[in-house]
Amino acid sequence: MNIFRLAGDMTHLASVLVLLLKIHTIKSCAGISLKTQELYALVFASRYLDIFTHYVSFYNTVMKLIFLGSAFSIVWYIRRHKLVRRSYDKDHDTFRHYFIVLPCLILALLIHEKFTFRVVMWTFSLYLEAVAILPQLVLLQRTRNIDNLTGQYVFLLGAYRALYILNWVYRYFTEPHYVHWITWISGLIQTLLYADFFYYYFQSWKNNVKLELPA
């Protein structure tokens, strides 16, 4: 475990906490894409298939449980909680799941390191995670009214991905034979999707104005 990986995981954890704070405490999911949250639930469900069969460390198991548990509880809140679901912006959150899930599944079946169920599912989760933020970014652009917590949530998610890239660079130079092209390319694409958002985030921060994405 290096500092970039730890910082990345902590940023990811912080993003989840910010979102849970908004949903659980303020009872609002305004500006949050249910589609993106459902895709994340699918990402973690397909990636952590080994959670109870292969023990790595206490840290790994706990983090996996947190990411799985939070992903599914966020989906539950937005769909079922009677106060939270009222604030859900259904009319603007119209991205179709299968436009994202199906290509990722096909790509995972075609391009993977090894053709076993677990490795293909893991690869699928990498491809899916790379593009799962798209419905959220589309929603932000459509509603044009981004509250503080939503903006911070997306920023933390993007920061987490950027830190993971630094982690891979570090591991590449410090560990022998550490080469994972599929992970790196999908991770890079995922981070690049945030580039536009980052630009406007820093602009609003620098000029001390409300974050707004151009149409």
Binding site: R5, H12, D50, H54, V56, F67, K114, V119, H180
Partner: peptide, 10 residues
């Protein structure tokens, strides 16, 4: 190696 990657990162 791919199994290793599956296990050790989140």
């Amino acid at each position: 190696p791919v199994e290793q990657a599956i296990h050790d990162e989140l």
